[in-house]
Amino acid sequence: MIVHEWFTETTSVVDRGAEFGARWSSQLQHARDDYLRLFIQSGVPEAAARRTAKECFDAVAALAPEIAEEYRGMARGSGLPLPDLHLLAARTEILAGVTTSQECSTIVHVPHDARAPHTLQTWDWHQTLSNETIVQQFRSSTGSRITTFCEFGQPAKIGVNEHGVGLHFNILHHESDGSRVGVPVHVLARMILDRARTLEDAVSIARSTPLAASTVLTVVSFDGTTPRAAAIEVSPVGIAVLPVDRGSTFAHTNHFLDAALAAGEHCPYETSSHPRYRCLTDAAALAEIADDRDRALAFGAIPAAPISVRPVPEEPEHLRWETKLTIALDVAAGAIAFAPAAPADIQQSQWRRVGAE
């Protein structure tokens, strides 16, 4: 997988969107074509996908108009129809309820002392999709410097801001997914990175944002003296906040940990979520390793660890998953560090660091 990097100082959201669209028009077009194919393979007709995307962006226009404006600029710069870009931002909502993702394993350690949280996540996705992705760094409409990894056409995914707030992102599946109109979960991630200066801010934003699909945002923060973290499990019927104590390690994969939300779990296909979760919790001490690359290498050295997901050739294309990225957050420096590889393959891959330093 190729991870492109893009940095801009453009402050106008429309102009920034246009600049991005002009620079990455080919990648946006390919992403649009790939996702239209995935929707059909997953049993979602194109007309239904477009209807869901429009409903989602009607909600974005009401609750995060600056992001809606950025997408208008992106359409202008790329030459793609605006509804096509909405398809990319709302892909989780379009697929909600029809496919269970083997997507992502996250672990966070919150030190006892005055050090920032240590984090690590894998990003698992379709083997044949999103083989070009991007790390963006820009100033949001609030003036906050954001660094985020995401797919082309998404406003954000995993990332940090300059105020010491960062988030990891794991998909979840609930029986209420698709039952209401709401903001795409990737837009919620961007709203938190844009607006939050504290963990409480992130929780407040999540509580006040209606959603059409489920996910968990594991948010970490550091103000220079106090490390903090909490998992925010969100769904169309409500949210749960799972705080992480000082000196503790917390893991999350793709099943709800809150008992009330877990009662509505929806899994139409077999998932590796529980084995990956056990792998992380069994090796929780490795999350205390201070250096982010060493931390990734340690998890990669676990024999036959299921967190390094390998594609199964016999599976249909739309059910063939692999780990495409391993990423860590440094909220003290406003940076992310990553390699386009599973943990087991970090040794053979370049470990990159991008941030405000």
Rank of each mutant, 00 (worst) to 15 (best):
G73I: 11
D223T: 02
D201E: 03
A341Q: 01
A47S: 13
Q347K: 03
S308H: 07
E151H: 15
G224Y: 07
P117Y: 04
I2R: 10
P184G: 04
E69Y: 13
A332W: 08
E55P: 03
T209C: 02
V3Q: 00
F256Q: 00
Q29E: 15
S221G: 07
V108A: 06
T100L: 02
S140K: 00
Q102E: 10
A213S: 10
S235W: 00
A251K: 12
A22F: 09
D291P: 04
A341F: 02
Q121Y: 11
G21A: 09
A49I: 01
A287R: 02
P268G: 04
A304T: 11
A305E: 08
A240S: 12
G143W: 02
H4L: 10
A61T: 04
V331G: 07
T225R: 12
A263I: 03
V237P: 00
T128C: 15
T323G: 05
I192D: 04
L63R: 06
D223S: 02
T10L: 09
R72E: 13
A202R: 11
A206D: 08
I232F: 14
L211W: 02
T128H: 15
D113P: 04
P227G: 06
R37S: 15
C56F: 05
F149G: 02
P45M: 12
E288W: 03
V98E: 01
Q29R: 13
A262Q: 07
P227D: 05
V331L: 07
R72L: 10
T8V: 14
I302L: 11
A114F: 09
H168N: 15
Q29D: 12
P155A: 08
V13N: 12
A260I: 13
L199A: 01
A64R: 05
L325A: 05
Q121S: 15
G334M: 04
